[in-house]
Design a protein around this nucleic acid. Sequence first.
DNA 1: CTGAAAGCGCTAACAA
DNA 2: TTGTTAGCGCTTTCAG
Lengths: 329, 329
Amino acid sequence: MERATIRDVARVAGVSVKTVSRVLNHERYVTDETRSRVTEAIAELNYRPNPAAQGLRRSTTGAIAFVCEDISEPFEAQIAGSIERAAADQYVVIVASTFGDPLRERTTIESLASGYADGIILSPTMGSKAYLHSLPRGIAVVCLDRPARDFESDLALSDNVGAMAWAVRHLLMRGHTRIAYLGDDVGVFTQQERLAGYRKALEEADIPFDKDLIYQHSPDDSRIRNHLAWLRQLRQPPTAHVSANSLTTLSMIHAGFFTGSATFIAFDDFPLADVLHGGVNAIAQDAGALGDEATRMLLRRMRNDTSPVRTTRLGAQLILRHDEGHGDT
Amino acid sequence: MERATIRDVARVAGVSVKTVSRVLNHERYVTDETRSRVTEAIAELNYRPNPAAQGLRRSTTGAIAFVCEDISEPFEAQIAGSIERAAADQYVVIVASTFGDPLRERTTIESLASGYADGIILSPTMGSKAYLHSLPRGIAVVCLDRPARDFESDLALSDNVGAMAWAVRHLLMRGHTRIAYLGDDVGVFTQQERLAGYRKALEEADIPFDKDLIYQHSPDDSRIRNHLAWLRQLRQPPTAHVSANSLTTLSMIHAGFFTGSATFIAFDDFPLADVLHGGVNAIAQDAGALGDEATRMLLRRMRNDTSPVRTTRLGAQLILRHDEGHGDT
DNA sequence: CTGAAAGCGCTAACAA
DNA sequence: TTGTTAGCGCTTTCAG
């Protein structure tokens, strides 16, 4: 199929290209009669504006990008889905994975900003993002799940502190005072927040913080197995456990830890959590809401909103599936 | 940051724009000396070609698109990830979900083809895809996971027939002759193939096909629960079960079916299958390989390969996690 | 209300 | 080996 151009449409409709352009862009000052002639011609020729030409002229692309760590991770994929829905029919969405590599991230972003996308939703890796200040002008960047270092921007993230505090508070109320915390590497932003939530709940209850109960490493089945064994042999072993992210939970499961008890809560819900070991308590983030909110923020910035940057913390849900007996906190 | 253009580079390097264009496109006939002057100017100005302008001129976009049912589904997300990796640094990848709506699919594809992407990897919905023949010329389309009706194209998919036959054969060899099959809607291509695999294995073993053992509906927990109960009350109830897709497996689990037995095999492996109910036998598709292969096919077509269309069937793996005793088929 | 002409940034002839 | 010129298809002055 040969592409029809705006000139073809103009010729068929018997008007000038500018007039066609006007109806395309819903400008005023076009007679209804002219408009309908043009519309017919467009339909007849099955005409569609050439995005490259539009982009060249308007310096926009009609695309937004989601730059994340790995699109094949379910959490990121869910976010991608909600971004797509939220941007629906206004923008195409480009996805780009950084695989945690800051250099790759930078290259990717600079390339996207050089004319592939009008806006970027970024789940930043660690490391300075100062270079975001010198992106070609006009490109909006908002952050998702965690802030970018050295770069102020709108940010949509879960209320990690509050949700973890909620979970720990729940365990405290059931009389647990020795609660083991198992999380990912300390360098990970969300992990810092979740540990903060843990500490906050302890402080509120005047329970001393015991470093022995804290485990923070990138998940590794055998290492976690050892740690769990070690915990059991403490003079005062923990009577409850929380996990601070899904990979850690997975490792615990693989290490043989029984997750189906009222004394365990996993940060991040997961498929089959309702069934595994008879049901696993979990804190569920709302991935869809994160994507929605970030998209809203981005679109607003793309409309040249210059209000101060804002942060939206989205609540996460504590799902109790194994509260022996019944009754909540 | 103001964008530098090719003219700026030319000016700084003291050459013509065409020369800059030459070094940009790695054309021959540029002195090393000239080339390095240009390269320096490019670096100095932090110049990057404008994709819209390039696209307008070359009528290419530098993007490929993955059109699937729902990018938030783990299987599709994994494929997206592998496409991204396979196309790495050559193309940006656009994702677009159809949510199973053929109309939306068509609109999306036509829009993408109108100048957002140079090629499309499509997991088609049901319904005729004849319109793919009249896409603006130059756009390559390959299919993934299932063929498009009324449109010949390269196709990468799992060996559904073979894998399911393998699973059923395995059960037959253990003496089961009444094997219940639970799958998704008959209209779904992969489901037809998997049922064919089931029948094939039975035929090979001269076991009569019994329609009573076949269930094919879009997954629904309570409906599946009823069906499972009904199966149990047959005069000759099944002694083994296979599930033909992940949602069905999930429904079975939710319906209380015990999946951790040697007499059950699930098509599609899933997270925690190694742990749930003590381990679930499964057939694992290689999502990554599907994406890789489809991308390879697409890139080949985009290089104007006009060889006959081909279909690649990728093997799926039977993973036995609950083979009481030991020893395989 | 409508049109003519210029030009966005780049690459493809064609000359030099 | 390099430069000049003409567009790609569209939107945008600026006149009609």
